[in-house]
C-alpha cells in the first residue's frame, strides 16, 4: 500500500503573510495558495469552508474575493460538504477555473467526478487547483459541539481555535484559556463513514498539506503532479511561502508515514470486518 500517494516533492512551508498567519491553522498554506492563485488568475474562485449559521459551523462557499478566502482561514474540525457547491461554482458563479480545498475523501470524490461526470455538465474540465488537507477523521457538527462544550467545557461562542495534536484535542478560548482532553475520548464521536477511508494525506490532490511532520506554525506540503508543481513553484518564486527541506525539520515525513500507516491499516481492517459483519452477511464495500 502506498501510504503517502504519488508526489513529486515534499517540503515544510509557511505563508509569508502575517495577515494569513494571524488566524491560520498552521502554515496558512491553503489560504495563501488560493489568494495567490486568485490574484494571478490561475483560479477565478475557490470552494472553501466559509462560516455557517451556527458558531463554528462551516458552510461551503464559492469565494471569489480575497476577503472571502481570508475569512475562511483555519480548520473547523467538523464536516463541510465542499463538493456540494461544485456545480454551482461553474453554473451559477460562472467560474472557468475552479479552486477547491478538500479532505482526502472529498478529493477522491472530486477525481471520481472528473472521470465520471454524472450530472456535472461542463464541470469536470474546469478544476484548476485542488488543494487537499491531511485528515485522520472528521466530526459532525453535533459531535464537535459535544466535544467542545461537554468534554472541554468551552462555549462555542468563546472558542478561538481547536486543534488536534500530541494525542490531545485542544480548545483555546478568546480569553486565553486552554482546555485539552485525551484524543481517545473523541473517538466515539467520529463520523462512521471516516472509518472506511483509505487516504490520509489527500493522495489525489494537486497539492496536499497538513501540520503533521512539521514544527508548530509550519505545514508539511506534498506537491503531487505537474499542475501542482507549476503553481507551487510560481508561488514560492513570488515569495508567497518560505520553505525548508522536509528532511531538515522534526519530526518530518517519518511521522506522516507512521500516522498514514496507522490510519489506513486500521481502516482496512474495518473494511474487512464489515465483509463479515453479520451471520453469513456483510455490509456493503464501496471499493471495487
Amino acid at each position: 500500500m502506498d501510504y503517502l500517494g504519488k508526489y513529486k516533492s515534499a517540503v515544510a512551508a509557511r505563508s509569508t503573510s502575517a495577515e494569513v498567519l494571524r488566524c491560520s491553522q498552521d502554515g496558512g498554506i491553503v489560504t495563501s495558495m488560493f489568494l495567490y492563485a486568485l490574484e494571478e488568475g490561475i483560479i477565478d474562485g475557490a470552494i472553501v469552508a466559509g462560516q455557517g449559521e451556527k458558531p463554528w459551523q462551516p458552510k461551503p462557499i464559492v469565494a471569489t474575493t480575497p476577503e472571502e478566502i481570508l475569512s475562511s482561514r483555519g480548520t473547523r474540525y467538523n464536516v463541510c460538504p465542499n463538493m456540494s457547491v461544485l456545480k454551482e461554482s461553474v453554473r451559477k458563479y460562472g467560474l472557468d477555473k475552479v479552486g477547491i480545498v478538500g479532505t482526502p475523501c472529498q478529493i477522491q470524490a472530486l477525481r471520481k467526478a472528473q472521470l465520471y461526470p454524472i450530472g456535472l455538465r461542463d464541470v469536470c474540465d474546469k478544476i484548476a487547483l485542488a488543494m487537499g488537507i491531511f485528515c485522520m477523521e472528521n466530526f459532525s457538527y453535533q459531535s464537535m459541539t459535544q466535544i467542545v462544550q461537554d468534554h472541554c467545557n468551552v462555549d462555542l461562542h468563546s472558542l478561538k481555535k481547536t486543534d488536534i495534536g500530541k494525542g490531545k484535542y485542544w480548545a483555546y478560548t478568546n480569553r486565553g484559556a486552554v482546555s485539552q482532553i485525551p484524543l481517545k475520548l473523541t473517538h466515539k464521536y467520529e463520523q462512521p463513514g471516516c472509518h472506511v477511508c483509505l487516504d490520509y494525506v489527500a493522495n489525489l490532490a494537486d497539492i496536499s498539506t497538513g501540520s503533521v511532520g512539521s514544527p508548530d506554525g509550519w505545514s508539511t506540503v506534498f506537491i503531487r503532479n505537474n499542475n501542482g508543481e507549476n503553481i507551487w513553484n510560481k508561488a514560492v518564486a513570488a515569495g508567497v511561502f518560505e520553505t525548508k527541506p522536509i528532511e531538515s525539520v522534526k519530526p518530518g515525513l517519518e511521522l506522516v508515514t507512521k500516522l498514514a500507516t496507522e490510519k489506513i491499516t486500521k481502516n482496512q481492517k474495518e473494511v474487512e470486518h464489515r465483509a463479515s459483519f453479520g451471520v453469513g452477511k456483510g455490509l456493503r464495500n464501496p471499493y471495487i
Binding site: 478538500g102 467526478a113 454524472i118 462512521p192 456493503r284
Partner: peptide, 26 residues
C-alpha cells in the same frame, strides 16, 4: 444506512433537480 457516508456533498451537486441539500453535513 450502511455507515459509509462522509458528507462530501457530491450527491447534492449531481442532482439535476436540486432535490438534495446538505443538512448538518449529510
Amino acid at each position: 444506512n450502511q455507515g459509509l457516508c462522509m458528507g462530501c456533498g457530491t450527491c447534492a451537486t449531481s442532482c439535476p433537480v436540486f432535490a438534495i441539500t446538505m443538512e448538518e453535513g449529510k
